[in-house]
């Protein structure tokens, strides 16, 4: 097992973060592994953790009544998932399932919430980084909703 602090430092989410913050965050993290098909998070269950994916693929899914799971997106090496630990009621809003063998760093949200309250500078730094991830996901969702590859009359043939 590599040192958690060093693993966090290698991850893009924590790029250029102060060493002191990294030490604090590292104290709340452990390395975890999931087998293919194993659920990492389940909708409506307590969201006490968030994850930084080091290897493998995670499917973010929602269960549709009478038709099973629908995959909303997949996440991969370098991605981060889970921000439900930041806001009440601290429950997952989707399922997260390991598609293949997944290695990740699991960070304890309850532990970090306490540390962020005590150290506002750390809290602000983490919030900035999560805000960026949320913005990227929001943009991606908008792009997905636009259905940009859907058939539209092309300008080349607008009058043909």
């Amino acid at each position: 097992m590599e040192d958690i602090e060093e693993l966090l430092r290698q991850h893009t989410f924590f790029r250029d973060i102060a060493d002191a913050h990294l030490r604090t965050i590292g104290g709340c993290g452990v390395e975890v592994q999931y087998r293919p098909g194993e659920y990492i998070a389940r909708e409506n269950m307590p969201a006490d953790y968030f994850f930084l994916i080091r290897r493998g693929c995670v499917a973010v899914e929602i269960q549709l009544p009478n038709s099973g799971p629908l995959c909303l997106q997949t996440l991969h090496e370098g991605d981060i998932f889970g921000w439900s630990w930041l806001f009440p009621p601290y429950q997952w809003t989707f399922d997260a399932r390991a598609v293949d063998s997944v290695q990740a760093i699991q960070l304890d949200g309850r532990c970090l919430r306490g540390k962020c309250e005590a150290e506002p500078e750390l809290g602000y730094e983490l919030m900035k980084r999560f805000a960026r991830i949320m913005t990227e996901r929001l943009q991606a969702t908008r792009l997905q909703l636009l259905d940009i590859y859907g058939e539209r009359p092309g300008p080349a043939e607008g009058s043909s």
Binding site: C71, Q73, T74
Partner: peptide, 21 residues
């Protein structure tokens, strides 16, 4: 791909997601 069912073994999500990482 932007949309897929759970039988699709590849990535699901818009093109900007893998580009961003």
């Amino acid at each position: 791909v932007d949309h897929a069912d759970v039988n699709w073994p590849g990535r699901v999500g818009v093109i900007t997601a893998p580009l961003s990482t």
